[in-house]
Amino acid sequence: MYAYIIRRLIATIPTMALVAVFVFLLLHLSPSDPAAIIAGDFATEEQILKIREQLGLTDPLYLQFTHWLSNLLRGNLGTSIYSGLPVTTPDRAAAGADTDADALHYGDRHQPGDPARGHRGVESRHWIDRAVMTLAVFGFSVPVFVIGYLLILGGSRMLGWFPVQGYTSILDSVPGFLSHITLPALTLGAVYMALIARMTRATMLDVLNEDYVRTAYAKGLATRKVLVKHALKNAMVPISTTIGLGVALLIGGVVVTESVFAIPGLGRLTVDAVLRTDYPVIQGVILVFSFTYVLLNLLIDISYVLFDPRIRY
């Protein structure tokens, strides 16, 4: 088991290295001079030269890459062109807000996403099934920010239950944090929930046709027990794969949601960096998000052993 985990961890190294190369090359795949774009329309020749120097674009490519990589390995993501601070500084300040929000979506989504859906699977064409699936497909079709604005309109404007925008750290005030995070968490969770609901339903329908489910019913187990212990547990492998891959959706959603709710997280940082074409920050954010994504999916791969004892490492 441990040997397997270590093997898998090592196997992610080439993937991450390739991601790093991609992210590095992004700056060089540009059809025009990145320094000119970063400098803006009104930059003088001198300013462009300065930026080119700052980015190290005057060196030969391999030198630039080794330089960038050695900095990266030491945890140095470069210097923000806009603020002049190391990229890791705004990162850390922002990361707090972000992980809080992410963690909440997880808590939020997983309860409604799972066992209840089993029931909907059983009565395959029941009206609840139709209603839930229509809702799920719809959750898929509405852009995250429209959901966000609708929730602000309903929850803050009409009902006055939640603040419109802003963010309070959980360290400063727990109720303040909860009231600020509820709407963004619901917003971001909607798409994710739709995704997981669809997958859960499809796999459950598959599993419910299996012989062991019939056997479980035949020996007189309660429906709930059959659904949760026998069917859902067997359906968990594909479902957790979806949960892992869906994180990419969450990451994209975070970027948009945080700008709707004015939350100072990594997503907001990304948007600001895009607007200022602050390339080192963009590169840093992509790297951080991608590595998190890869590691999360690795964790999920390893978790399969919990659901399926036939999988041995």
């Binding site: 970027v255 960096a273 963009i282 590169q283 992509i286 998000f289 994504y293």
Partner: peptide, 17 residues
């Protein structure tokens, strides 16, 4: 490797550039 970069982020970065 390309798939481990969340797609929206990659697209944002490309258009930004």
């Amino acid at each position: 490797a390309l798939m481990s970069i969340p797609s929206i982020l990659l697209a944002i970065a490309l258009v930004a550039l």
